[in-house]
Simulated assay, not measured.
Amino acid sequence: MTTLILGGTGKTGRRVAQRVDNARIASRTTGFDLGDPSSWASALDGVTAVYLVEPDLQAGPRLPRFVTEAVAAGARRLVLLSAPRAGEEGHPLHAAERAVRDSGVGWTILHPNWFAQNFSEGPWAQELRDGVLTLPTGDGRAPFIDAEDIAEVAAAAVTDDRHDGEVYELTGPRAVGFGEAVALIARATGREIRYADVDPEAFIERQTAYGVPENVARLLTGLLTDLRDGRGADLEDGVERALGRPPRAFEDFVAVTFRPAA
């Protein structure tokens, strides 16, 4: 079996690739571009399974077309990294989910909650290094899911047909407040780091000042303010159903990822 890993250098993709034999990484570093259909055929040649990721939620319905091409090229198993509520009309990943479900081959859909790795990779990590994490989340909490768990579920799904037809809602074992999360990281690193709540409109203005398109900034802010309003904190059993074990605790993620400052 050869498994094509979209986003093979990203948060989950590179971790899936480490767990799958005969993984083929599809990224711009390997000449693949999801926005350029002319680059698809060579990536799909001989592929039997595909891990699907859409890195740009504003890119339009290119993933459904890619699903069609993948199945035509011989892929017989699809695993889609999606998002909670993506099954609803109007969600940017709704068409991708429909395409995977209607593909005629084995499929699995993953709905991960907020990644624990947001604190160690990406813009949250830079803010933590600067000493203040500023988000419009108030006292909201999230059951952060370790990307290692997501990758382990994805690797199982692309290699074992017992996961066919499953939609796995993936969360950590408990909901953690942002203030608590930052305090745990500060204690692990031995540095002074704090969490600051910010007004949603001020957060949007700051994102657009950094060059983020306004529609993207509003989408992200809406997801964060959902947490402020108490939504998105429910625990799910997807990791345990898929792997037969509980998900990793946020405290374990912190202990492995963060080290005392030199």
Rank of each mutant, 00 (worst) to 15 (best):
R24K: 07
A75Q: 04
A70K: 09
I25E: 01
L34Y: 10
D21Y: 10
S42E: 15
P61A: 11
A72G: 11
R15F: 06
S42L: 12
A23D: 03
P37D: 01
L81K: 05
L52R: 00
A23R: 07
G7H: 10
T3L: 05
I25M: 05
L52N: 00
A73T: 00
G35D: 11
V20D: 10
Q58V: 14
V16D: 01
A75G: 00
V53E: 00
G31L: 03
V50Y: 01
A72N: 14
Q58G: 12
S39I: 08
V53W: 01
F66W: 05
L6A: 07
A72I: 00
T9E: 15
R28P: 03
A70N: 04
I25S: 13
P37G: 08
V20T: 05
D36E: 09
G8C: 11
E54S: 09
D36Q: 08
L34N: 12
V20P: 07
I25T: 09
T29M: 05
I5L: 03
A73R: 04
Q18V: 02
T12N: 09
W40C: 02
L78K: 03
W40K: 10
V50C: 07
I25K: 10
P37V: 02
A59S: 11
I5Y: 04
A17T: 11
T3N: 03
S42G: 12
T29V: 00
L52P: 00
D45P: 03
N22T: 10
W40M: 03
T9D: 14
G7R: 15
W40D: 02
S39F: 06
R65A: 14
T29F: 03
L80S: 02
T12E: 09
A41V: 06
K11F: 01
R28W: 01
V47Q: 08
L80K: 07
T30D: 00
V50W: 00
G46Y: 06
I5A: 06
R19T: 00
